[in-house]
Simulated assay, not measured.
Amino acid sequence: MTLELPPVRGTLTENRPLSDLTWMRVGGPADALFLPADEDDLAEFLAALDPSVPVFPMGVGSNLIVRDGGIRGVVIRLGRGFNGIEIDGTTVRAGAAALDAHVARRAAEAGVDLTFLRTIPGAVGGAVKMNAGCYGTYTADVFRSATAVTRAGDRVVLSADDLAFQYRQSALPEGWVLTSATFEGIVGEPEELAARMAAQLARRDETQPSKDRTAGSTFRNPAGFSSTGRADDVHDLKAWKLIDDAGLRGATLGGAQMNPKHANFLTNAGGASAAELENLGEQVRKTVYDQTGITLEWEIMRVGEPAPE
């Protein structure tokens, strides 16, 4: 697909392979990859870009399978101009490209408790879009507002009502690019918060394959209805247990594997294609459904087109 692309101050690369930008290390090329210099550059580009051209905002690729045929349109990836972190009292404002772990650490040093973000892979933009959560706390619980640039190039401020958070999802319109978010934490002692994060990391590394090529949890835990971390939100049924009970821990397809350490972590065990990863996930979904009647829902985003036949 040949695109008419507006001039930019950032970096704009056509036919750019995406595999090196995802944690799974799979994926074909984007028609174009745009790294804006700043919010003005992003807004001007989107305003000038043909409205028929699809736009896909991409974070650090920690929760993503890009299919082998790549992505048509423009992939937008925010970098250094969007990773600042500012703290005022218990209010934390972070650029969409700021890593969740960095936000948690900086907040803790300032005596603000956003410790749940410490073990969440990825960046702030993805955490807001997916209402990321850990240890019983969700992004929605601390969210105050976000800024975004619309597909038409307009800047908007979004409230929690605008985003309509649910379990592992929000109502961010397609093609809109989050540029920053503001959170409100609670006061904590820096030493205590640091110790809690260290314990969380140790627990994660003990139970999850944090050194392998995964994209985090593959499937959402079933059930739950309020889905924003309230006390009435129940996810007692775990996806890993359903996969384990179906005998699929360690299952393989080509270079793809359901991780032996944690059955809900789809893994590129070596040379996997995106198709192998996605097809293994679909086999798992079918088997679990056939055995239990429960449909596992993907937590990993799968985007783009399959490889041409």
Rank of each mutant, 00 (worst) to 15 (best):
D236N: 02
P222V: 04
S226P: 06
T182L: 15
V234Q: 13
V234N: 10
R230S: 12
A194Q: 10
A231Y: 05
A215I: 01
G254H: 06
S227H: 09
L201R: 11
P260H: 06
A194V: 15
P190T: 15
G185F: 04
D232S: 08
L266M: 14
D212H: 15
E191W: 11
T179A: 01
P209I: 01
G188D: 05
L253F: 10
A215T: 02
T207W: 09
G255Q: 10
K261T: 04
A223V: 07
N221Q: 06
D236Q: 09
L193D: 13
F183C: 09
S180I: 01
S227F: 03
T179N: 01
T218I: 02
A198M: 10
T214H: 10
R196E: 15
M258F: 03
A223E: 07
D232E: 06
A202I: 05
V187A: 13
W176H: 09
G216I: 00
F219Y: 07
A198P: 03
G254E: 09
A231H: 02
D232F: 03
R203H: 13
P222M: 06
T267Q: 07
L266R: 14
K238A: 15
G188I: 12
D212E: 14
K238H: 07
S210E: 00
S180R: 08
T207P: 12
A202Y: 07
F225G: 07
S180N: 15
T252F: 02
